[in-house]
Simulated scan of single mutants.
Amino acid sequence: MERKALAALCLLALVALAGCSATGSVSMETADDAEIAEAASRPAVVDSPAPDERRVVREAIENGSGTATATGPPVKRGLPLAYGDRYYEIDWNVTGTGPGTAFAVGVDLNGTAPADETVDFNELSERDRQLLGNLLTAMSERESRLRPGPEIAIPEEYTMAETNESVLLSGEYSAVRHNGTVYPFVLEERREVTLTRYRYTVSGVADSTSAYAQQLRDEHLFRLSGLSEAERSVVNEAIDGVYYAEDTDDESFRSLMDQFSAESAIEADSYDGTWLVRYDGEVYTADLSYGGFNQSERPVTG
């Protein structure tokens, strides 16, 4: 989540300036329905010039199930997935294995290549076009960089059938012509792998953002109350910012951590977590990092 990433970046900055890392931290932001739902979900569609690895999720949502072939599950179990205004749990089972090829293709946005080593985009295999199509369209709209060589490298895995049909992997060409522009490419890290076939299914969690946010409030919202002045100081610094506990002697941070540990987290592991908190009449999402405390002192609640 963006808030957790921001806190992590701030923590890295603190390390660079102070020469030592904070033992723990807490940050809090006010949250409406959309922000609560965002804190407890993952996007089902990722906007990226690279091929959408979550295509299988859309297939499962729209068709009842979806399939993918890869060395590992392309979408892991975890927080519900947001698709439109609806939210879904995702699951998968293994249906078989088979040989394949793993590789990375690097694309040069401003290079040149001999004409006899250039293939037209429409002559690529269907899988090749899927791999490069969105990338080249998005990249061609950006200003070319001046440094030589590939600017972008995309990891990919092909089944043996896709490998045999692939023009990119044939070794006959070193560039592709797309919409009148030639893009040299380089294949790297090619190796044979065993691919697993996954069948994905989804189940509905909520039909709207407001309904999902209400579920989360019902299941996870707790009240921070009865705080000492020192604890309130920690919370007030955390609101729209970050409070850092410099060592395990920070009793105010520890006592707050104990309150969090007694409550149900939206998501938590042995190092950090996200909670839904009511404080002084406002609802907040709270990101708590406690990796520097002893294992027995870390709140891990699901």
Results as ranks from 00 to 15, higher is better:
residue 63 N to V: 14
residue 141 E to T: 08
residue 262 A to G: 01
residue 77 R to S: 13
residue 107 V to I: 12
residue 297 E to M: 11
residue 101 T to A: 11
residue 206 A to G: 03
residue 78 G to C: 06
residue 154 I to V: 15
residue 92 W to A: 02
residue 128 D to T: 01
residue 151 E to K: 09
residue 61 I to E: 00
residue 161 A to C: 08
residue 22 A to Y: 01
residue 288 L to Q: 04
residue 121 F to C: 10
residue 235 V to T: 05
residue 91 D to T: 11
residue 156 E to T: 10
residue 289 S to C: 10
residue 74 P to C: 08
residue 92 W to R: 03
residue 238 A to H: 01
residue 58 R to T: 09
residue 83 Y to W: 06
residue 221 L to Y: 01
residue 15 V to C: 10
residue 160 M to G: 08
residue 207 D to A: 13
residue 294 N to P: 10
residue 150 P to R: 15
residue 97 T to Y: 11
residue 293 F to Y: 12
residue 298 R to L: 03
residue 81 L to R: 00
residue 75 V to Q: 02
residue 99 P to V: 05
residue 80 P to S: 12
residue 130 Q to V: 11
residue 64 G to M: 03
residue 38 E to I: 10
residue 22 A to W: 01
residue 53 E to G: 09
residue 232 R to T: 06
residue 186 V to P: 00
residue 228 S to R: 12
residue 299 P to C: 11
residue 134 N to G: 05
residue 122 N to T: 15
residue 298 R to T: 02
residue 262 A to I: 07
residue 293 F to I: 02
residue 164 N to Q: 13
residue 87 Y to A: 02
residue 132 L to G: 00
residue 100 G to D: 03
residue 123 E to S: 15
residue 49 P to Y: 11
residue 258 D to G: 08
residue 64 G to I: 05
residue 210 S to M: 09
residue 122 N to E: 14
residue 221 L to G: 03
residue 73 P to L: 05
residue 165 E to H: 06
residue 42 R to W: 07
residue 180 G to M: 06
residue 177 R to T: 06
residue 163 T to V: 09
residue 52 D to I: 10
residue 66 G to Y: 02
residue 218 D to K: 09
residue 117 E to L: 12
residue 153 A to Q: 07
residue 240 D to T: 06
residue 4 K to G: 14
residue 116 D to G: 03
residue 62 E to T: 09
residue 199 R to H: 13
residue 237 E to N: 05
residue 215 Q to E: 11
residue 13 A to I: 14
residue 60 A to R: 00
residue 84 G to M: 07
residue 73 P to W: 02
residue 132 L to R: 00
residue 149 G to A: 06
residue 284 Y to W: 04
residue 192 E to F: 07
residue 237 E to Q: 07
residue 92 W to E: 01
residue 224 L to P: 03
residue 99 P to D: 05
residue 4 K to R: 13
residue 198 Y to R: 05
residue 296 S to H: 10
residue 241 G to S: 07
residue 124 L to H: 00
residue 37 A to C: 04
residue 54 R to H: 08
residue 176 V to W: 00
residue 53 E to H: 14
residue 187 L to H: 07
residue 79 L to H: 01
residue 112 T to A: 08
residue 23 T to E: 11
residue 118 T to I: 06
residue 219 E to W: 07
residue 161 A to I: 10
residue 126 E to Q: 13
residue 182 V to G: 04
residue 168 L to E: 01
residue 186 V to T: 12
residue 65 S to M: 07
residue 17 L to D: 12
residue 152 I to P: 02
residue 236 N to R: 13
residue 171 G to W: 04
residue 230 A to W: 09
residue 22 A to L: 01
residue 28 M to V: 03
residue 296 S to A: 11
residue 274 T to I: 09
residue 5 A to Q: 13
residue 36 I to F: 00
residue 218 D to P: 06
residue 114 P to V: 11
residue 184 P to D: 15
residue 102 A to Q: 04
residue 141 E to L: 15
residue 59 E to I: 07
residue 50 A to D: 09
residue 109 L to F: 12
residue 9 L to M: 13
residue 247 D to Y: 02
residue 111 G to D: 02
residue 227 L to C: 05
residue 281 G to S: 04
residue 185 F to S: 00
residue 84 G to T: 11
residue 142 R to F: 05
residue 84 G to C: 10
residue 194 T to Q: 10
residue 252 S to K: 11
residue 81 L to W: 02
